[in-house]
């Protein structure tokens, strides 16, 4: 059976794409953010995953508001990035893993998560940039990938508890896959930020740090908050923490924290990063 080696949560601000393209990693503004990654690169080199399941939200590249699935799973041989309209470089395609995609789809539907399957799927910065950050300086990302998209755009959004349980079902699916593959799960987005309205620029460091701390050993802590509570506490786009929680749900048993980093601001965002190993 396949093994989940652990999970990583990381912010996905589009602006990071430009910093990578322009080699600004050691620039004063970017250094505190990029310096969070080497310990996680070391851990990845040690646990050697073959496949990355990436839990993220699309920002109007693959999904418009005409059809907005709450949860969707990619089932394509390859995933293309494309022009998102704001001038960040388009990245090379990502390899899929059709066997895992379809195993997950079957297993999730059996577990009563009626996801949307996508045999063609464009992947936006929320999928591509975390992979660029975790496997830098490669012509093409060395992982086979399965994109899992969570709606954090069109309210109502799935509840925190639903996302955690969705994550658990993904974890069970991966662990019941007849394969010797080693799988890492990545949750992207957050942490607190708000782009729109008179409250634009809202950041909540205290809440973010509590969320990160609780995510290791008490992940259900955040399920006490409704989605509107989370908007109030973390900003209209801070609710992307649901992707982090979904990732955490996939990890079986106890976990140990490998490394974390938290830096304010990257663009308008509190940039968080965490890697956890599955026991």
């Amino acid at each position: 059976m396949a093994k989940i080696v652990g999970g990583i949560n990381v912010t996905h601000v589009p602006y990071i794409g430009r910093a990578i393209a322009n080699n600004l990693q050691q620039d004063e503004y970017w250094k505190p953010f990029f310096d969070g990654f080497p310990p996680i690169h070391d851990w990845l080199a040690k646990v050697k995953p073959d496949v990355a399941v990436v839990i993220y939200n699309d920002h109007g590249l693959n999904f418009f508001l005409d059809k907005m699935p709450t949860f969707s799973v990619g089932a394509a041989p390859e995933y293309q990035n494309a022009d998102e309209g704001w001038g960040i470089p388009t990245l090379p395609p990502y390899k899929g893993d059709l066997d895992l995609s379809w195993h997950m789809i079957e297993s999730l539907i059996e577990a009563e998560f009626d996801i949307t399957t996508c045999q063609e799927m464009l992947v936006d910065h929320a999928f591509t940039l975390p992979l660029e950050l975790l496997w830098p300086n490669q012509k093409q990302c060395p992982m086979r990938t399965v994109p899992v998209c969570v709606n954090t755009v069109q309210f109502p959004l799935p509840t925190a508890a639903r996302c955690f349980n969705f994550g658990r079902a993904i974890g069970k699916a991966i662990e019941s896959w007849e394969s010797d593959a080693r799988v890492v799960v990545i949750g992207t987005g957050g942490l607190s930020h708000q782009l729109d309205g008179q409250r634009a620029g809202f950041i909540n460091k205290e809440f973010d740090l509590m969320f990160m701390e609780k995510l290791v050993n008490d992940p259900l802590w955040v399920t006490r908050y409704s989605v509107p509570d989370l908007v109030e506490l973390t900003g209209t786009q801070g609710v992307e923490l649901l992707n982090w929680l979904t990732m955490r749900g996939t990890l079986p048993g106890d976990v140990s924290l490998i490394h974390s980093n938290y830096h304010i601001p990257i663009s308008n965002t509190a940039a968080g990063l965490m890697a956890m190993a599955a026991e």
Binding site: G60, V153, Q154, F155, P156, D196, G197, Q198, R199, T236
Partner: peptide
């Protein structure tokens, strides 16, 4: 939530054409 607009069904209905243009 002061200074905050949640993008709910009412907003989605009102803004469809505008959002489609932006898409």
């Amino acid at each position: 939530i002061p200074g905050t607009t949640i993008f709910d069904g009412d907003q989605a209905r009102k803004g469809y054409a505008l959002n489609k243009m932006c898409f």
